[in-house]
Design a protein around this nucleic acid. Structure first.
Lengths: 139, 139
DNA sequence: ACAATATTGTTCGTATACAAACGGATTTTG
DNA sequence: CAAAATCCGTTTGTATACGAACAATATTGT
């Protein structure tokens, strides 16, 4: 017979993880209202890597094919990225940050740093390091 | 001039938090395929609290009014919860776990414990405690 | 008592997130 | 070389998640 009393929803990793994520999302929306976290992630990787195929970009940013497609579609509609078919592999769609996209990225970089800082602001340096390590470890 | 080179997407809290959450979601779907994490959370709180108003349930499970509505709608469609209008306050909708809902909750409780366990399995006891504390601290 | 305010639930729009299925292109393998 | 397997991007369906606006109801302040 399972012990029903000992399960406390609000102490489970999943629940706390969701709440921490919610808090971060709020901070992100406050400091970078023009981009969502995933849009920013895609743009950041594009600026870092240059030209990448859509699915590869998804892998680099931890989004599955269906998700990255939606993200790119929205960035493209706002002309923050451009797309180009690969001539060698007709399936592949190369994505690149447009100049506007690159500018927006550069202009939001400072805010992005502030987001990380503010998310962790209740922790000291050692705790921040520990948290990131432990989170990485369970991923 | 901002230092562009020092921003590494994959080392930012938000990114790591999202990935950790993804991992947990996968484990959850593996061990409890019949309920989503939020559905389970709602059901768990209902079984704990008995009858609660819809918005109050949302607060107890960290979901806003629009989100909890969708969750309850789906649980209701599957007859896992019942709803009843408050006679005192005509706006209020009371939610209650049905017998089916309570049974499903009891039957999934063991799996729910395994989910938390498996999510944290790469950490020792001290690390688990630390992680939960730090996550709670930034929430 | 009554006007201002707040709360409850609903709806709409936008944006992840992912499973599943698909057609087409490429690569691997027997 | 042909069959099988894989990979590419796309679409559909379901489920969070939340801002914003809304009507109906309750509560508060004067």
């Amino acid at each position: 017979m399972p012990d029903k009393s000992s399960y406390q929803l609000t102490r489970q990793v999943g629940y706390i993880l969701r709440r921490a994520n919610q808090r971060h999302l709020t901070i992100f929306a406050d400091l970078i209202p023009t981009l969502t976290p995933t849009q920013f992630a895609a743009l950041a990787k594009l600026c870092e890597l240059g030209s990448v195929s859509q699915n590869e970009l998804g892998r680099q940013t931890a989004m599955d094919a269906a998700t990255i497609k939606g993200v790119i579609d929205r960035l493209k509609k706002r002309q923050l990225v451009t797309t180009r078919r690969d001539t060698d592999d007709q399936r592949r769609l190369f994505i690149e940050a447009s100049q506007q996209g690159a500018e927006l990225y550069n202009n939001t970089l400072a805010a992005a740093r502030k987001i990380s800082e503010r998310t962790l602001q209740t922790l000291n340096q050692a705790e921040r390091k520990t948290l990131l390590e432990l989170l990485t470890k369970i991923t």
